[in-house]
Write a protein that binds this DNA or RNA. Structure first.
Lengths: 190, 190
DNA sequence: ACCTGAACACCGTTCAAGT
DNA sequence: ACCTGAACACCGTTCAAGT
C-alpha cells in the first residue's frame, strides 16, 4: 500500500507533475507548489527532503503508470499495429492536455542538470519503453534478430519523442499527427 | 557589421550558448556567466537588458549559423544522401562535444517557460530547417507533392531531434548512430 | 560607453520551534 | 506525525553612482 490517493504526499506529486510536464524540472518550485495546494514550502521538505527526491518520485511513478498501461495492452492481446496506435495515443493525449510533454522527454532535455537520483528514473522510463516496443515488434514475426528489433524499438521511441517535442513547439497536435502518419507510411512504426 | 568576434557582447553569448546547450534555458544564469568571464552580473544587463533578450539573441545567431551552413551545402551541389549525411553530422558533433544538444531542441522542451521573443526565434530555427530539408528532398525528383515533401521534411527533423534527445540521455553517441542508421534503412532519411 | 554595489523579490534548503 | 517562521546563499532585475 502506498497510502490514500489524496494524502498530502500524493497531492504534492500531482501538482508537481503538471508543472514539470508543462515547464520542465528546472521550473519546478517548492514555493509555487506550496501556494497552489495551501501549504508552506518548508512543509514539502517533510515529505520530499530535496527537489531531487520529488523529481525522482515523480519519474518513478510515471514509469509505473506506463508499465501498468503496457500490461493492459498485453492482456488485450492486440496486434502490433493496434498496440502502436494506442501507444502513440498517449503522447497525443499529453499534447491535447494543455500542450504537455512526456515527463521523461522533457527531463531528458535537462539531463545534465538533473540530480543522479532523477536521472536514473528517467533512464528507466526509456528502458522500459524500448523493452515493451521490442516485444510488440517481435509479435510481427518478421524474422529480424533481437538486436535489430531493439534498434527499431529505440528508433521508434526516439522518433515519437521528437515528434512530440517539435509539435509542442508549434502548439499544434496536427503537426504530431502528420509526423506520426509519415513514420507509419515509411513503416518505421507498424 | 556585427562587431569584433571578441567584444564583450559576443563573449557573453559564447559562454551563454554553451550553458544552454548543456543545461537548458532555465539553467542559464547571469551570475554564472559573470563569474566565468570576469564581469559583474549587473554589467551583462547593459548588453542584454533581460534574460529573454540574451536567449533570443542566442537562438537568432544559432539559426544564422545554420543558414550559413545550409548555404555552403547548396553551393557544393551535393546529392541528397550526401547532404543528409552532413546534416545529421552536425547533431552528432553536438553530442560528441560534451554531450550537448541542439540549442533549439533543448529550448523547445522548455517551450512553455520561454519568453515570447525567445520562442519566436526557436520556431524560426525549425521553420528554416524544414524549409531546407524540403528543398533537399525535392532534389530527389520522386514526383511527390510539395505538401508530401514538407511532411517528410518535418518528420525527418522531428526524428533527428528525438534521436539526439534520447541518445543524450544515454550519454552514448553510438545510440544516436544506431538510430540514424535505422531511419536510413527505413528510407525515412535519404 | 561601459561597469559596479546595493537593494528588491524570488529560489531551495536547514533547523529550531510549535501542535 | 506533520507543519511553520526565520535564516542562509542563491537568482534576475533595477538603478543610482562611478569611470
Amino acid at each position: 500500500m502506498t497510502g490514500s490517493t489524496t494524502d498530502t504526499r500524493q497531492i504534492i506529486m500531482n501538482a508537481a507533475r503538471v508543472m514539470v510536464q508543462a515547464r520542465g524540472y528546472n521550473a519546478l518550485s517548492f514555493r509555487e507548489i506550496g501556494k497552489e495546494i495551501g501549504i508552506k514550502s518548508a512543509s514539502i521538505h517533510y515529505h520530499f527532503p530535496t527537489k531531487g527526491d520529488l523529481g525522482a518520485a515523480l519519474a518513478h511513478q510515471y514509469t509505473e503508470d506506463a508499465l501498468a498501461f503496457f500490461g493492459t495492452l498485453k492482456d488485450a492481446a492486440l496486434e502490433p499495429a493496434t498496440c502502436m496506435e494506442k501507444y502513440t495515443g498517449i503522447f497525443r493525449e499529453a499534447l491535447l492536455n494543455n500542450n504537455r510533454m512526456c515527463l521523461a522527454g522533457i527531463m531528458a532535455a535537462e539531463h545534465d542538470d538533473l540530480p543522479p537520483e532523477v536521472r536514473v528514473e528517467v533512464d528507466r522510463f526509456t528502458d522500459e519503453n524500448v523493452r515493451w516496443l521490442t516485444e510488440v515488434l517481435a509479435g510481427k514475426k518478421t524474422g529480424l534478430s533481437d538486436e535489430q528489433l531493439r534498434s527499431q524499438a529505440l528508433a521508434i521511441f526516439s522518433a515519437i519523442e521528437g515528434a512530440q517535442l517539435v509539435a509542442r513547439g508549434r502548439g499544434d497536435v496536427a503537426v504530431f499527427d502528420q509526423t506520426i502518419a509519415t513514420y507509419r507510411s515509411m513503416s518505421l512504426i507498424p
